[in-house]
Simulated assay, not measured.
Amino acid sequence: MPEIEIEPALKEFFANSSIALALASTERDNPLVLASQQFYTLTGYDSSDVIGRNCRFLQQRPDGEYASNDDAKRKLHAFIHGNDANVRAPIVNFRKDGRPFVNLLFMSKLKAANGKVRYIIASQFDVSRTHPDLLQAYDEALGDALARLKPLLDGHNVMVEGTLATIANSTTTIAQAKLTLAELETNSPY
């Protein structure tokens, strides 16, 4: 994959991020072009494992099978190919060591001044073993990160599309994630 030139302000933003972030190109199959240290810590992968790959590899079990994630896949497909500014969906992912977690995935489109989507920014949060207060703190950190990102990109003809309306604390999301993880761990041969 040819090297994509990423705005220095965006690189610095990722380097200083307190939350897990990944940035995908809109070329070909949406390969990752940048990730934060928190992304690597959460997933157990490093940059040589992820840069140039579509994030769907995180849905792959150690035996090569993919987690079903049907509802999340429909939402993400509609987001990628539609006009929605952002999306949030719980999705089963696997760390490099094979341990599953339920990722509360948030994705937003970053558009150039001409309206063309340049990047897709994603934030990941493990809701499978968390408490509502941690999700609320993450929601606040994500909202703050997106608010700080907007002015950084203004001078570079890139903007965050949409609003933060998709970010809402939900104890239902956590409860569903814990149920999903319990089912995975009960039925898993790993």
Rank of each mutant, 00 (worst) to 15 (best):
M1N: 14
I4M: 13
I4N: 04
I6Y: 11
P8N: 14
P8K: 14
L10D: 04
N16Y: 07
S18N: 05
S18K: 04
A20G: 00
L23P: 03
L23H: 04
S25V: 05
T26S: 11
T26A: 13
E27G: 12
R28H: 08
D29L: 06
N30G: 08
N30H: 13
P31W: 01
L32D: 02
L32N: 03
L32R: 10
V33D: 01
V33N: 02
Y40H: 14
S48H: 06
V50R: 01
I51C: 11
N54G: 11
C55G: 08
R56T: 08
F57R: 03
Q59W: 03
P62M: 00
P62Q: 00
Y66Q: 05
Y66N: 05
D71T: 06
R74D: 05
R74Q: 15
K75D: 14
L76F: 14
L76H: 05
F79D: 04
I80W: 00
H81W: 04
H81R: 12
G82Q: 10
G82T: 10
D84F: 01
A85I: 13
A85E: 10
V87G: 01
F94V: 02
K96D: 11
K96P: 11
D97R: 13
P100V: 03
P100I: 00
F101H: 01
N103M: 03
N103R: 03
L105H: 01
L105F: 05
F106K: 02
M107Y: 00
K109W: 04
K111H: 00
A113R: 15
G115W: 13
K116G: 00
V117G: 04
R118N: 09
Y119M: 12
Y119G: 01
I121V: 09
S123V: 06
T130M: 06
H131G: 00
D133M: 09
L135R: 01
Q136V: 01
A141T: 07
L142E: 04
G143N: 15
A145N: 04
A145P: 05
A147P: 14
A147Y: 08
A147R: 15
R148E: 10
L149F: 10
P151N: 02
P151R: 00
P151A: 01
D154S: 12
G155C: 10
H156C: 08
N157S: 15
N157L: 12
V158D: 10
M159D: 15
V160D: 03
L164M: 12
N169T: 14
S170K: 08
T172Y: 15
I174V: 13
T180V: 07
L181Q: 11
E183K: 08
E185H: 03
E185A: 05
T186R: 09
T186L: 15
S188C: 11
S188I: 09
P189Y: 04
Y190Q: 12
